[in-house]
């Protein structure tokens, strides 16, 4: 093992032990490792942003670009300056325009992403199970395909019903009222089961990956301890 490998190995070993020490309670060593990690990550991010965003999108066109490119970069330059200057409390109002730009941009991406990226593809995936043509082309029997499609539809409808905000009593809010309008309430009970199934399955996946990480750390620590004890 060469010197750098040894040094990084020792650093990794110490950091792992310090972070895992959190399992016996919050302590100074955990905080030390956590703050070191925060400092390094913040530094890394700064370098990354400077090299991959600020230089190519702002500084390079400004310093090395053609007149046309320089003109186009004036608007983002102005927005950037407003954002930077707004950090002085007397000039705080300057941040309104760049933040409004960012909020508007994000809102549109949210709408597009939500409708065309999630809602429509998910609805299509539910409905596509009802295509009779698809039932005979796959290895599954058609009755199983039907059951699958129907259960999927019921599950999705039930889950959506569970999220209904309005209460049954429309005139006056009863402080103990938890129920939805009658039909939606019945569907919501079904939805509750499906939400439980979904979260349970996801939990199993997260738990498996977290367990793998734990095994990885134990193997790593064990390897280093064995090396030191064995003198290798």
């Amino acid at each position: 093992m060469n010197m750098p490998e040894l040094v990084w190995g020792v650093v990794g070993f110490l950091l792992t032990v310090m972070i895992l020490s959190y399992l016996i309670g919050d302590n100074f060593f955990f905080r030390l490792a956590a703050y070191l990690f925060v400092g390094v990550t913040a530094g890394f991010l700064t370098v990354l942003i400077a090299r991959q965003i600020l230089w190519p999108y702002l500084l390079q066109p400004l310093l090395e670009g053609s007149t046309y490119q320089r003109l186009w970069v004036l608007i983002p330059l102005l927005l950037s300056l407003m954002l930077i200057l707004s950090q002085i409390s007397q000039l705080r109002a300057l941040s309104r325009i760049p933040l409004a730009f960012l909020a508007g941009l994000t809102a549109a991406l949210v709408i597009g992403g939500a409708v065309f990226g999630t809602m429509i593809p998910q609805m299509r995936a539910v409905v596509i199970g009802f295509q009779p043509a698809a039932w005979h082309t796959e290895s599954r029997s058609s009755w199983m395909h039907t059951v699958d499609a129907v259960v999927m539809l019921i599950g999705v409808i039930g889950t959506l019903s569970y999220f209904h905000f309005g209460s049954r009593f429309k005139r006056k809010t009863d402080s103990s009222d938890l129920s939805r309008p009658r039909l939606l309430q019945a569907l919501a009970r079904v939805g509750e089961v499906f939400i439980g199934f979904a979260l349970g399955a996801l939990f199993a996946g997260i738990f498996s990956s977290a367990l793998l990480a734990m095994i990885d750390r134990i193997v790593f620590l064990g390897g280093w301890i064995a090396r030191w004890v064995g003198g290798g």
Partner: peptide, 23 residues
Amino acid sequence: WISEDILRVLMIALLVIAAGLTL
């Protein structure tokens, strides 16, 4: 709230109709 509730009910109806039409 109410807009979301109405849209949700409409989407449930849409899913049922679309499933029927696909079938």
